[in-house]
Design a protein around this nucleic acid. Structure first.
Lengths: 196, 196
DNA sequence: GTCTATATGCTGATAGAC
DNA sequence: GTCTATCAGCATATAGAC
Protein backbone atom coordinates (compact mmCIF):
# COMPACT_ATOMS: atom_id res chain seq x y z
CA UNK A 1 0.00 0.00 0.00
CA UNK A 2 2.76 2.47 -0.99
CA UNK A 3 0.89 3.69 -4.02
CA UNK A 4 1.29 7.31 -4.94
CA UNK A 5 -2.20 8.28 -3.88
CA UNK A 6 -2.88 11.25 -1.62
CA UNK A 7 -2.59 10.34 2.05
CA UNK A 8 -6.32 10.67 2.66
CA UNK A 9 -7.15 8.23 -0.14
CA UNK A 10 -4.47 5.80 0.97
CA UNK A 11 -6.00 5.77 4.45
CA UNK A 12 -9.51 5.06 3.16
CA UNK A 13 -8.24 2.32 0.85
CA UNK A 14 -6.28 0.74 3.70
CA UNK A 15 -9.32 0.76 5.97
CA UNK A 16 -11.52 -0.81 3.28
CA UNK A 17 -8.90 -3.46 2.62
CA UNK A 18 -8.47 -4.36 6.27
CA UNK A 19 -12.21 -4.47 6.89
CA UNK A 20 -12.64 -6.97 4.06
CA UNK A 21 -10.40 -9.40 5.91
CA UNK A 22 -10.88 -8.59 9.58
CA UNK A 23 -14.09 -6.66 9.94
CA UNK A 24 -14.36 -3.48 11.95
CA UNK A 25 -13.64 -4.45 15.54
CA UNK A 26 -10.46 -6.40 14.87
CA UNK A 27 -8.95 -3.58 12.81
CA UNK A 28 -6.92 -1.19 14.95
CA UNK A 29 -5.99 2.39 14.21
CA UNK A 30 -2.33 1.42 14.28
CA UNK A 31 -2.92 -1.22 11.60
CA UNK A 32 -4.67 1.31 9.38
CA UNK A 33 -1.86 3.85 9.45
CA UNK A 34 0.82 1.17 9.08
CA UNK A 35 -0.97 -0.32 6.09
CA UNK A 36 -1.32 3.14 4.52
CA UNK A 37 2.26 4.16 5.41
CA UNK A 38 0.90 7.26 7.11
CA UNK A 39 1.42 8.76 10.55
CA UNK A 40 -1.30 8.56 13.21
CA UNK A 41 -1.67 12.29 13.24
CA UNK A 42 -2.73 12.34 9.60
CA UNK A 43 -5.62 10.00 10.26
CA UNK A 44 -6.99 12.29 12.95
CA UNK A 45 -6.25 15.30 10.77
CA UNK A 46 -8.47 14.03 7.95
CA UNK A 47 -10.94 12.15 10.15
CA UNK A 48 -11.42 14.06 13.40
CA UNK A 49 -13.94 11.47 14.64
CA UNK A 50 -11.37 8.74 14.22
CA UNK A 51 -11.91 5.11 13.43
CA UNK A 52 -15.69 5.26 13.13
CA UNK A 53 -15.51 8.08 10.63
CA UNK A 54 -12.91 6.48 8.40
CA UNK A 55 -14.93 3.25 8.48
CA UNK A 56 -17.99 5.15 7.30
CA UNK A 57 -16.00 6.63 4.43
CA UNK A 58 -14.57 3.26 3.45
CA UNK A 59 -18.02 1.66 3.44
CA UNK A 60 -19.48 4.42 1.30
CA UNK A 61 -16.74 4.40 -1.29
CA UNK A 62 -16.67 0.63 -1.73
CA UNK A 63 -20.47 0.46 -1.71
CA UNK A 64 -20.55 2.84 -4.65
CA UNK A 65 -17.85 0.89 -6.47
CA UNK A 66 -19.59 -2.44 -6.21
CA UNK A 67 -23.00 -1.42 -7.49
CA UNK A 68 -21.25 -0.25 -10.63
CA UNK A 69 -20.34 -3.87 -11.36
CA UNK A 70 -23.93 -4.90 -12.02
CA UNK A 71 -24.32 -3.40 -15.50
CA UNK A 72 -20.69 -4.08 -16.35
CA UNK A 73 -21.03 -7.80 -15.68
CA UNK A 74 -24.63 -8.31 -16.86
CA UNK A 75 -24.82 -6.16 -20.00
CA UNK A 76 -22.74 -8.49 -22.20
CA UNK A 77 -25.23 -11.34 -21.74
CA UNK A 78 -28.46 -11.45 -23.75
CA UNK A 79 -29.87 -14.00 -21.34
CA UNK A 80 -30.09 -12.64 -17.80
CA UNK A 81 -29.55 -16.09 -16.32
CA UNK A 82 -26.24 -16.41 -18.17
CA UNK A 83 -25.25 -13.03 -16.78
CA UNK A 84 -26.01 -14.08 -13.21
CA UNK A 85 -24.04 -17.27 -13.61
CA UNK A 86 -21.06 -15.30 -14.92
CA UNK A 87 -21.40 -12.84 -12.04
CA UNK A 88 -21.21 -15.56 -9.39
CA UNK A 89 -18.41 -17.41 -11.15
CA UNK A 90 -16.37 -14.20 -11.34
CA UNK A 91 -16.97 -13.62 -7.64
CA UNK A 92 -15.80 -17.14 -6.83
CA UNK A 93 -12.61 -16.71 -8.80
CA UNK A 94 -11.80 -13.32 -7.28
CA UNK A 95 -12.48 -14.54 -3.79
CA UNK A 96 -10.25 -17.57 -4.00
CA UNK A 97 -7.46 -15.53 -5.58
CA UNK A 98 -7.77 -12.86 -2.87
CA UNK A 99 -7.24 -15.45 -0.13
CA UNK A 100 -10.87 -15.71 0.92
CA UNK A 101 -11.32 -12.09 1.82
CA UNK A 102 -14.85 -10.94 1.28
CA UNK A 103 -15.30 -9.00 -1.94
CA UNK A 104 -16.86 -6.07 -0.20
CA UNK A 105 -16.45 -4.86 3.37
CA UNK A 106 -20.15 -4.09 3.72
CA UNK A 107 -21.10 -7.75 3.98
CA UNK A 108 -18.32 -8.61 6.41
CA UNK A 109 -18.98 -5.66 8.64
CA UNK A 110 -22.77 -5.33 8.60
CA UNK A 111 -23.57 -8.25 10.87
CA UNK A 112 -20.75 -7.43 13.23
CA UNK A 113 -21.76 -3.85 13.95
CA UNK A 114 -25.55 -4.06 13.59
CA UNK A 115 -26.10 -3.72 17.32
CA UNK A 116 -22.92 -2.10 18.58
CA UNK A 117 -22.36 0.77 16.13
CA UNK A 118 -25.71 2.39 15.30
CA UNK A 119 -24.24 5.06 13.03
CA UNK A 120 -22.33 2.54 10.94
CA UNK A 121 -25.38 0.28 10.75
CA UNK A 122 -27.41 3.13 9.29
CA UNK A 123 -24.73 3.82 6.73
CA UNK A 124 -24.60 0.13 5.79
CA UNK A 125 -28.41 0.10 5.54
CA UNK A 126 -28.31 3.09 3.20
CA UNK A 127 -25.76 1.38 0.97
CA UNK A 128 -27.71 -1.87 0.84
CA UNK A 129 -30.96 -0.03 0.12
CA UNK A 130 -29.38 1.82 -2.77
CA UNK A 131 -27.97 -1.46 -4.10
CA UNK A 132 -31.46 -2.93 -4.08
CA UNK A 133 -33.01 0.13 -5.72
CA UNK A 134 -30.39 0.42 -8.46
CA UNK A 135 -30.31 -3.27 -9.19
CA UNK A 136 -34.11 -3.40 -9.33
CA UNK A 137 -34.05 -0.54 -11.83
CA UNK A 138 -31.52 -2.44 -13.91
CA UNK A 139 -33.69 -5.54 -14.06
CA UNK A 140 -36.70 -3.43 -14.99
CA UNK A 141 -34.61 -2.05 -17.82
CA UNK A 142 -33.96 -5.63 -18.89
CA UNK A 143 -37.69 -6.24 -19.18
CA UNK A 144 -38.86 -7.48 -15.80
CA UNK A 145 -41.99 -6.31 -14.08
CA UNK A 146 -41.01 -3.89 -11.25
CA UNK A 147 -42.34 -6.04 -8.42
CA UNK A 148 -40.71 -9.15 -9.83
CA UNK A 149 -37.48 -7.24 -10.44
CA UNK A 150 -37.28 -6.24 -6.79
CA UNK A 151 -37.91 -9.77 -5.60
CA UNK A 152 -35.26 -11.16 -7.93
CA UNK A 153 -32.81 -8.53 -6.68
CA UNK A 154 -33.42 -9.26 -3.01
CA UNK A 155 -33.16 -12.98 -3.60
CA UNK A 156 -29.95 -12.66 -5.59
CA UNK A 157 -28.33 -10.29 -3.10
CA UNK A 158 -29.20 -12.52 -0.15
CA UNK A 159 -27.90 -15.57 -2.00
CA UNK A 160 -24.69 -13.75 -2.95
CA UNK A 161 -23.95 -12.52 0.57
CA UNK A 162 -24.80 -15.89 2.08
CA UNK A 163 -22.65 -17.70 -0.46
CA UNK A 164 -19.77 -15.34 0.38
CA UNK A 165 -20.19 -16.19 4.05
CA UNK A 166 -20.15 -19.93 3.39
CA UNK A 167 -17.22 -19.69 0.97
CA UNK A 168 -15.23 -17.71 3.49
CA UNK A 169 -16.01 -20.08 6.33
CA UNK A 170 -15.47 -23.30 4.39
CA UNK A 171 -12.71 -21.94 2.14
CA UNK A 172 -14.51 -23.39 -0.84
CA UNK A 173 -16.12 -21.89 -3.92
CA UNK A 174 -18.86 -24.55 -4.00
CA UNK A 175 -21.50 -22.29 -2.46
CA UNK A 176 -20.90 -19.56 -5.05
CA UNK A 177 -21.06 -21.91 -8.01
CA UNK A 178 -24.14 -23.74 -6.71
CA UNK A 179 -26.12 -20.60 -5.89
CA UNK A 180 -25.11 -18.93 -9.15
CA UNK A 181 -26.19 -21.95 -11.14
CA UNK A 182 -29.50 -22.26 -9.31
CA UNK A 183 -30.34 -18.58 -9.65
CA UNK A 184 -29.39 -18.69 -13.32
CA UNK A 185 -31.88 -21.48 -13.95
CA UNK A 186 -34.53 -19.53 -12.11
CA UNK A 187 -33.96 -16.23 -13.87
CA UNK A 188 -33.73 -17.69 -17.38
CA UNK A 189 -37.38 -18.75 -17.14
CA UNK A 190 -38.87 -15.51 -15.89
CA UNK A 191 -41.57 -13.83 -17.97
CA UNK A 192 -40.45 -10.59 -19.62
CA UNK A 193 -42.80 -7.72 -20.26
CA UNK A 194 -43.57 -6.96 -23.86
CA UNK A 195 -41.10 -5.26 -26.14
CA UNK A 196 -37.75 -6.56 -24.93
CA UNK B 1 -29.85 -14.75 32.87
CA UNK B 2 -30.36 -15.70 36.55
CA UNK B 3 -31.71 -19.13 35.68
CA UNK B 4 -30.91 -21.96 38.02
CA UNK B 5 -28.48 -23.62 35.64
CA UNK B 6 -25.01 -24.70 36.72
CA UNK B 7 -22.48 -21.88 36.46
CA UNK B 8 -20.69 -23.47 33.53
CA UNK B 9 -23.87 -23.75 31.49
CA UNK B 10 -24.92 -20.21 32.36
CA UNK B 11 -21.58 -18.95 31.08
CA UNK B 12 -21.88 -20.79 27.77
CA UNK B 13 -25.47 -19.60 27.30
CA UNK B 14 -24.45 -16.02 28.06
CA UNK B 15 -21.61 -16.17 25.53
CA UNK B 16 -23.89 -17.59 22.84
CA UNK B 17 -26.47 -14.93 23.55
CA UNK B 18 -24.01 -12.06 23.41
CA UNK B 19 -22.38 -13.36 20.23
CA UNK B 20 -25.77 -13.41 18.48
CA UNK B 21 -26.02 -9.66 19.00
CA UNK B 22 -22.46 -8.40 19.05
CA UNK B 23 -20.28 -10.99 17.44
CA UNK B 24 -17.05 -12.21 18.98
CA UNK B 25 -14.76 -9.20 19.06
CA UNK B 26 -17.19 -6.78 20.63
CA UNK B 27 -18.08 -9.20 23.43
CA UNK B 28 -15.83 -8.71 26.44
CA UNK B 29 -15.09 -11.19 29.20
CA UNK B 30 -16.59 -8.80 31.70
CA UNK B 31 -19.85 -8.72 29.76
CA UNK B 32 -19.99 -12.51 29.69
CA UNK B 33 -19.63 -12.93 33.45
CA UNK B 34 -22.00 -10.05 34.18
CA UNK B 35 -24.62 -11.52 31.87
CA UNK B 36 -24.21 -14.93 33.49
CA UNK B 37 -24.11 -13.51 37.04
CA UNK B 38 -20.86 -15.33 37.65
CA UNK B 39 -17.45 -14.19 38.91
CA UNK B 40 -14.51 -13.82 36.52
CA UNK B 41 -12.62 -16.55 38.32
CA UNK B 42 -15.29 -19.11 37.45
CA UNK B 43 -14.91 -18.46 33.74
CA UNK B 44 -11.19 -19.15 33.87
CA UNK B 45 -11.81 -22.12 36.16
CA UNK B 46 -14.06 -23.85 33.61
CA UNK B 47 -12.35 -22.45 30.51
CA UNK B 48 -8.60 -22.15 31.16
CA UNK B 49 -8.01 -20.82 27.64
CA UNK B 50 -10.43 -17.99 28.27
CA UNK B 51 -12.61 -16.19 25.79
CA UNK B 52 -11.61 -18.20 22.74
CA UNK B 53 -12.43 -21.47 24.45
CA UNK B 54 -15.83 -20.41 25.72
CA UNK B 55 -16.65 -19.07 22.25
CA UNK B 56 -15.79 -22.45 20.75
CA UNK B 57 -18.10 -24.14 23.23
CA UNK B 58 -20.93 -21.71 22.56
CA UNK B 59 -20.62 -22.19 18.80
CA UNK B 60 -20.65 -25.97 19.11
CA UNK B 61 -23.66 -26.13 21.37
CA UNK B 62 -25.81 -23.73 19.34
CA UNK B 63 -24.70 -25.35 16.09
CA UNK B 64 -26.01 -28.68 17.33
CA UNK B 65 -29.25 -27.09 18.50
CA UNK B 66 -30.04 -25.44 15.20
CA UNK B 67 -29.59 -28.42 12.91
CA UNK B 68 -32.20 -30.18 15.02
CA UNK B 69 -34.75 -27.64 13.78
CA UNK B 70 -34.66 -28.94 10.21
CA UNK B 71 -36.77 -32.07 10.71
CA UNK B 72 -38.91 -30.41 13.37
CA UNK B 73 -39.95 -27.61 11.02
CA UNK B 74 -40.08 -29.56 7.74
CA UNK B 75 -41.63 -32.89 8.77
CA UNK B 76 -45.15 -31.51 9.21
CA UNK B 77 -45.35 -30.44 5.57
CA UNK B 78 -46.09 -32.95 2.82
CA UNK B 79 -44.82 -30.50 0.24
CA UNK B 80 -41.17 -29.58 0.80
CA UNK B 81 -41.73 -26.13 -0.66
CA UNK B 82 -44.42 -25.41 1.92
CA UNK B 83 -41.99 -26.52 4.61
CA UNK B 84 -39.27 -24.17 3.39
CA UNK B 85 -41.68 -21.25 3.29
CA UNK B 86 -42.78 -21.99 6.85
CA UNK B 87 -39.13 -22.25 7.93
CA UNK B 88 -38.24 -18.81 6.57
CA UNK B 89 -41.43 -17.21 7.89
CA UNK B 90 -40.73 -18.60 11.35
CA UNK B 91 -37.19 -17.24 11.19
CA UNK B 92 -38.51 -13.81 10.21
CA UNK B 93 -40.93 -13.73 13.11
CA UNK B 94 -38.35 -14.87 15.65
CA UNK B 95 -35.80 -12.39 14.40
CA UNK B 96 -38.06 -9.39 14.59
CA UNK B 97 -39.29 -10.41 18.04
CA UNK B 98 -35.71 -10.90 19.27
CA UNK B 99 -34.82 -7.33 18.28
CA UNK B 100 -32.92 -8.25 15.10
CA UNK B 101 -30.37 -10.47 16.75
CA UNK B 102 -29.19 -13.19 14.43
CA UNK B 103 -30.86 -16.51 15.14
CA UNK B 104 -27.58 -18.31 15.48
CA UNK B 105 -24.16 -16.99 16.48
CA UNK B 106 -22.39 -19.05 13.83
CA UNK B 107 -23.58 -16.80 11.01
CA UNK B 108 -22.82 -13.58 12.85
CA UNK B 109 -19.38 -14.68 13.93
CA UNK B 110 -18.10 -16.68 10.96
CA UNK B 111 -17.30 -13.76 8.67
CA UNK B 112 -15.83 -11.72 11.48
CA UNK B 113 -13.26 -14.27 12.63
CA UNK B 114 -12.49 -16.05 9.35
CA UNK B 115 -9.05 -14.47 9.09
CA UNK B 116 -8.25 -13.42 12.64
CA UNK B 117 -9.13 -16.52 14.68
CA UNK B 118 -8.04 -19.64 12.80
CA UNK B 119 -9.14 -22.08 15.51
CA UNK B 120 -12.64 -20.62 15.69
CA UNK B 121 -12.92 -20.56 11.91
CA UNK B 122 -12.17 -24.28 11.78
CA UNK B 123 -14.82 -24.95 14.39
CA UNK B 124 -17.33 -22.85 12.46
CA UNK B 125 -16.39 -24.72 9.27
CA UNK B 126 -16.99 -28.04 10.99
CA UNK B 127 -20.42 -26.93 12.18
CA UNK B 128 -21.43 -25.64 8.75
CA UNK B 129 -20.19 -28.81 7.07
CA UNK B 130 -22.22 -30.96 9.40
CA UNK B 131 -25.28 -28.79 8.76
CA UNK B 132 -24.87 -29.36 5.04
CA UNK B 133 -24.34 -33.10 5.43
CA UNK B 134 -27.28 -33.61 7.76
CA UNK B 135 -29.62 -31.43 5.80
CA UNK B 136 -28.64 -33.16 2.57
CA UNK B 137 -29.42 -36.51 4.19
CA UNK B 138 -32.81 -35.17 5.25
CA UNK B 139 -33.69 -34.10 1.72
CA UNK B 140 -32.56 -37.46 0.38
CA UNK B 141 -34.93 -39.03 2.89
CA UNK B 142 -37.66 -36.85 1.45
CA UNK B 143 -37.06 -38.29 -1.99
CA UNK B 144 -34.45 -36.10 -3.65
CA UNK B 145 -31.51 -37.40 -5.61
CA UNK B 146 -28.35 -37.05 -3.46
CA UNK B 147 -26.58 -34.61 -5.75
CA UNK B 148 -29.67 -32.47 -6.11
CA UNK B 149 -30.30 -32.65 -2.36
CA UNK B 150 -26.86 -31.24 -1.65
CA UNK B 151 -27.30 -28.41 -4.11
CA UNK B 152 -30.69 -27.52 -2.68
CA UNK B 153 -29.19 -27.52 0.81
CA UNK B 154 -26.28 -25.26 -0.08
CA UNK B 155 -28.57 -22.89 -1.95
CA UNK B 156 -31.07 -22.73 0.91
CA UNK B 157 -28.40 -22.25 3.57
CA UNK B 158 -26.71 -19.48 1.61
CA UNK B 159 -30.05 -17.78 1.02
CA UNK B 160 -30.98 -18.09 4.70
CA UNK B 161 -27.71 -16.66 5.99
CA UNK B 162 -27.75 -13.88 3.43
CA UNK B 163 -31.36 -13.04 4.21
CA UNK B 164 -30.46 -12.88 7.91
CA UNK B 165 -27.66 -10.45 7.10
CA UNK B 166 -29.95 -8.21 5.05
CA UNK B 167 -32.75 -8.36 7.62
CA UNK B 168 -30.34 -7.42 10.39
CA UNK B 169 -28.84 -4.56 8.42
CA UNK B 170 -32.11 -3.15 7.09
CA UNK B 171 -34.19 -4.08 10.14
CA UNK B 172 -36.80 -5.54 7.84
CA UNK B 173 -38.18 -9.04 7.32
CA UNK B 174 -38.62 -8.49 3.58
CA UNK B 175 -35.50 -10.43 2.64
CA UNK B 176 -36.57 -13.49 4.63
CA UNK B 177 -40.07 -13.56 3.19
CA UNK B 178 -38.89 -12.99 -0.38
CA UNK B 179 -36.15 -15.62 -0.29
CA UNK B 180 -38.41 -18.12 1.47
CA UNK B 181 -41.14 -17.64 -1.10
CA UNK B 182 -38.73 -17.93 -4.03
CA UNK B 183 -37.06 -21.06 -2.70
CA UNK B 184 -40.46 -22.58 -1.96
CA UNK B 185 -41.52 -22.13 -5.58
CA UNK B 186 -38.28 -23.69 -6.72
CA UNK B 187 -38.39 -26.70 -4.41
CA UNK B 188 -42.05 -27.51 -5.01
CA UNK B 189 -41.24 -28.33 -8.63
CA UNK B 190 -38.25 -30.58 -8.10
CA UNK B 191 -38.36 -34.15 -9.39
CA UNK B 192 -38.60 -36.79 -6.68
CA UNK B 193 -37.10 -40.23 -7.06
CA UNK B 194 -39.52 -43.11 -7.25
CA UNK B 195 -41.31 -44.48 -4.21
CA UNK B 196 -41.92 -41.39 -2.06
C1' DG C 1 -15.66 -23.75 43.26
C1' DT C 2 -16.25 -18.74 44.34
C1' DC C 3 -14.79 -14.31 44.50
C1' DT C 4 -11.75 -9.86 44.55
C1' DA C 5 -7.82 -7.38 43.55
C1' DT C 6 -4.52 -6.70 40.41
C1' DA C 7 -0.86 -7.19 36.54
C1' DT C 8 0.34 -6.19 31.87
C1' DG C 9 -0.43 -4.71 27.42
C1' DC C 10 -2.97 -2.58 23.84
C1' DT C 11 -6.76 0.51 22.53
C1' DG C 12 -8.46 4.96 20.47
C1' DA C 13 -7.36 9.45 20.85
C1' DT C 14 -4.61 13.92 21.78
C1' DA C 15 -0.89 17.61 22.26
C1' DG C 16 2.40 20.05 20.44
C1' DA C 17 7.03 20.47 17.97
C1' DC C 18 8.32 20.88 13.27
C1' DG D 1 0.12 18.54 6.80
C1' DT D 2 3.55 15.43 9.13
C1' DC D 3 5.23 13.14 12.85
C1' DT D 4 6.34 11.50 17.85
C1' DA D 5 5.43 11.01 22.57
C1' DT D 6 2.07 10.17 25.56
C1' DC D 7 -2.54 9.94 27.93
C1' DA D 8 -6.41 7.54 30.20
C1' DG D 9 -9.13 3.56 29.93
C1' DC D 10 -10.31 -0.98 29.01
C1' DA D 11 -8.92 -5.54 27.42
C1' DT D 12 -7.64 -10.43 28.79
C1' DA D 13 -5.79 -12.97 32.07
C1' DT D 14 -3.91 -14.28 36.78
C1' DA D 15 -2.95 -14.84 41.95
C1' DG D 16 -4.38 -16.05 46.02
C1' DA D 17 -7.73 -15.61 50.07
C1' DC D 18 -11.83 -17.87 51.32
Amino acid sequence: MTESLPTRDRLVAAMADLMRFQGYGATSVKQIVDHASAPVGSLYHFFPQGKRQIAADALRSTGAAYIALVPVLLDPHDDLGDGIRAFFDAAAEDMERAGWANMCPVGTVAAEIADTEPELREIAAGIVSSWIDQSTAYFVGRGLDPDLARRVTVMALAALEGAFLLARTLRSTESLHVTGETLAGLVSHLPLTAGT
